[in-house]
Design a protein around this nucleic acid. Structure first.
Length: 448
RNA sequence: GUGGCCGUAGCUCAGGUGGCAGAGCGUCGCGCUGUGGCCGCGAAGGUCGCGGGUUCAAAACCCGUCGGUCACCCCA
């Protein structure tokens, strides 16, 4: 082989676990994000944007007991010797920003951000995935838990999803959790030889995670383990009951999941998870979150209770596929300008109608209509076909005969009818038929 | 990170036991030299993921590797 030979083709593809999102699929993303942004705005949340990477300690402080931070984080050192990490989860950066800027509580923010985890990729589990989420800092009112959960629930429902379940639990707080953990540990120690190796090693370090183990033997043991919910202190108990009552009051169906333990270990009190029933795979968690009342303090900030959730966009879209909702939007244009005088020729001077096509197209776009044209000197047939494929409502055809009269031909692509309109009037003519009316009547309706 | 299955055109996939690389859809052109959808005709488009091996001959068999997928694990 000679030097300078091309690198393997594998280099010119998206890295493992990442992917490109192209039209028309990207249209679903746009619709999904718009739905979330609109809902967040109606709930009084502002957009927050934090860096894609942080000082590594931002994540390490928060998740030293978790695989996400311990084993899956993309860590690197920059040229200044700083130790940084690509964001593996969404809450820590937002809490860091809260501590740094000290906004007036309650601080209600939403985000859309990529998350990076070095995992073995498969469908629904990617090395770069995207989450929509919210965080609220500074208030521990259970009504806020209800608001946050209902925001997520309403969002999923608004997409057309129905086959998912909401599980909620309370993990207690610094008053009651230590006592519970001891009770759980002593129970687990008494059943050590019935547990899997992973669970055994977690008895001392993170016994809550044992409750989450899916190994049948472990499940058998933990089914009879002390229940977290029976060890809640009065404050936590009251809080959790208030959350349930609030969800009931607004009709958000939920089930208590006493063994729901989430992957990040900063959670206190309320935790919740949305799981799709339409997904067969193990990757069926659409989103989840919970309260983290001690996190800001642990990160060196003022005591600031918080709650939030993250929803995985890729997984939501997979669930939408499974339920047959949120199809990619069909292409649509108000108008398509066709040059019937040409041929303009590729790279040559504009055809007879070329300048007029350019001018009309610009005018349509600048007055607020969506409009496009074909390029490359294509036949009238090819241009009209392209207009059809682009979802054009009207085709404006610039032909020699019409131009000599100072007019254009306008074709209604739904009815197939074609009329001649004075060139000077055509933009207004299209607006009259396409702009929504104040009285709500359909623009196309010529009656009354 | 461990194990199973899969990898043929842009997409979805055919190609019994090795013997000339195919279809549908999509794209482009023509029928209609100034008009989309339906129909007909035609064209372009493929290092059969990649590398090595066995063989007169490999898309097919063997080994490796990369990618996808499923389970475990983890989680959105």
């Amino acid at each position: 082989m000679q030097s300078g030979s091309a690198p393997p083709a594998d280099v010119y593809r998206a890295p493992v676990g990442t992917h490109d999102v192209l039209p028309p699929e990207s249209g679903r993303w746009a619709a999904l994000v718009a739905a979330f942004a609109g809902r967040a705005a109606r709930f009084g949340y502002g957009l927050v944007m934090t860096p894609a990477y942080e000082h590594i300690e931002v994540f390490q402080r928060v998740g030293e007991g978790t695989d996400v931070v311990r084993k899956e984080m993309y860590e690197f050192e920059d040229k200044g010797g700083r130790r940084l990490a690509l964001r593996p989860e969404g809450t820590a950066p937002v809490v860091r920003a809260y501590i740094q800027h000290r906004p007036t509580p309650p601080w209600k923010v939403w985000y859309l951000s990529p998350h990076f985890r070095h995992e073995k990729a498969q469908r629904g589990r990617y090395r770069q995935h995207h989450q929509l989420g919210v965080e609220v800092l500074g208030v521990d009112d259970p009504a806020l838990d209800v608001e946050v959960i209902s925001l997520a629930h309403g969002f999923l429902t608004s997409l057309g999803l129905s086959r998912f379940r909401l599980a909620i639990n309370s993990l207690g707080d610094e008053q009651c959790r230590p006592g519970y953990l001891e009770a759980l540990r002593s129970y687990l120690r008494a059943h050590v030889d019935e547990l899997c190796a992973d669970s055994r090693s977690r008895i001392e370090t993170n016994p809550l995670r044992v409750l989450d183990c899916k190994n049948p033997a472990c499940v058998a043991v933990t089914e009879r383990a002390p229940q977290l919910l029976e060890h809640l202190c009065p404050d936590c108990k009251t809080h959790f009951e208030a959350v349930q009552a609030g969800l009931d009051a607004i009709g958000v169906p939920h089930e208590i999941a006493p063994r729901l333990v989430r992957g990040l270990d900063y959670y206190t009190r309320t935790t919740f998870e949305f799981a799709s029933e339409a997904l067969e795979s193990a990757q069926n968690a659409l989103g989840g979150g919970g309260r983290y009342d001690k996190l800001a303090e642990e990160m060196g900030g003022p005591p600031s209770p918080g709650i939030g959730f993250g929803i995985g966009i890729e997984r939501v879209l997979i669930a939408c596929d499974a339920e047959g909702v949120l199809p990619a939007p069909a292409p649509h244009l108000d108008a398509y300008v066709v040059d019937a005088v040409g041929p303009a020729g590729v790279g040559g001077p504009l055809g007879t109608a070329g300048a007029e096509v350019t001018a009309l197209l610009a005018e349509l776009r600048e007055t607020g209509l969506s409009a496009d044209r074909a390029y490359g000197g294509r036949s009238v047939r090819a241009q009209t076909k392209a207009a059809d494929r682009a979802g054009a409502r009207y085709v404006v055809l610039l032909g020699r005969a019409e131009m000599e009269k100072g007019a254009v031909a306008v074709r209604d692509m739904v009815s197939g009818e074609q009329v001649e309109v004075p060139r000077a009037r055509v933009v207004a003519w299209l607006h009259e038929r396409l702009d929504p009316r104040i009285d709500g009547t359909a623009p196309e309706d010529p009656g009354s």
